[in-house]
Design a binder for these strands. Structure first.
Lengths: 196, 196
DNA sequence: GGAATGACAGATATTGAAATCTGTCAGCTG
DNA sequence: CAGCTGACAGATTTCAATATCTGTCATTCC
């Protein structure tokens, strides 16, 4: 069966919305555009998403969830060596963000705008990420290599202290020469702070 | 002699510009407004500042230099106890920013916009601040309480890691409950990382 | 009958003409 | 004559009319 005559699902709408956002950018992407891309009336889109904001949020969530998945793997087998685990996880977060920002700056800017609109969704994303970090820190405490009062607090501190290397607002700094060294310096200091 | 008939100096122009910015905001503050406030033609303003951008930069520099001064005192007598010095200096930086952002949010937003335009000036300001931090860290190394390879690198790492608590882009987070504790958690981790 | 449509009201965005601003400079003024 | 003025060209901003969009819903279509 041809794709264009398939049932209209939330999934297909989300894909079309991503495409429209990619093409038009966040300011000019309208739900009429999305409907046009799907060959339906915009009323049909509103059957699946109550508002334009809800549609954008759903797209943002998909995007962020994909990013979360990429890191979950590293978090999973970081238990063996917690110190290397923390370093690798933070480095992977930085590398992933930098790759996206550098590889397709316009798309990255688009999603940065969307993320700015979707406070709730972003909070959840950050909670997931700090959750992954918390698990690594906790493993380190249990293994006796880290000495922190509360792994949750420490993980949040790690995440916030490295904000310059993953917060999209700093994206333009990530191409400057020397960032890599700056990142290492911050992580060194933090990891030393975690140790017994 | 009445103020309005005094010689037109760069200083008087800067004061008038601050006032115009305070009143109209960064988007609507024009050179013509500044000239009007001073009772002169806008051509006279251009005698002292080559461009509108140069005028704004000069105002920004004044503002940032005042902030630098506030912290210089703390940096000066932080030599006695370097660890407390680092904590106090970072806390003072955070407190000063938070006070300004909370006390007059519109003015703070205005200067944030100006700072965003004046890359050069801001770089200099940051260099001054990390210079102050470097002095404290170096004192700690010499006193034998800190163990870091390079005080300059460590100071930059401290500054960048605490960005969330002084970068104007995060200003809206500074009023949330719990920030104080988050700040302490980050600083604790960093200071532990500095120790021998 | 469940899904899709398209016309509609109010909100938002676009457009182009008019107003204002930036930066320059020849000339005025004290 | 050093400092200031005001008229000017080109760039930018404002404003109001026009077009488009968002969100709803009575109606149509399998």
């Amino acid at each position: 069966m041809p794709a264009t005559s398939e049932t209209l699902t939330a999934e297909r709408i989300l894909e079309a919305t991503e495409e429209v956002l990619r093409r038009h950018g966040p300011a000019k992407a309208t739900v009429v555009d999305v409907a046009r891309a799907l060959g339906v009336s915009h009323g049909s889109v509103y059957r699946h998403f109550r508002t334009k904001a809800a549609l954008r949020e759903a797209v943002t969530k998909r995007w962020l969830d994909r990013a979360t998945q990429e890191l979950a793997g590293i978090a999973a087998d970081a238990g063996r060596d917690p110190e290397a685990g923390v370093r690798e996880w933070l480095a992977a977060l930085f590398a992933a963000k930098r790759l996206k920002a550098g590889g397709d700056p316009e798309l990255f800017a688009t999603y940065s705008v969307l993320a700015g609109e979707a406070g709730e969704v972003v909070s959840g994303h950050i909670a997931e990420l700090t959750g992954q970090l918390t698990a690594i820190v906790r493993a380190g405490v249990e293994a006796g290599v880290f000495a922190v009062a509360d792994p949750v607090t420490a993980a949040r501190a790690l995440f916030q202290a490295t904000g310059r290397f993953h917060d999209p607002g700093y994206a333009k700094e990530w191409e400057r020469p020397g960032v890599e060294a700056e990142f290492e310096a911050v992580v060194d200091l933090l990891v030393r702070g975690l140790r017994r």
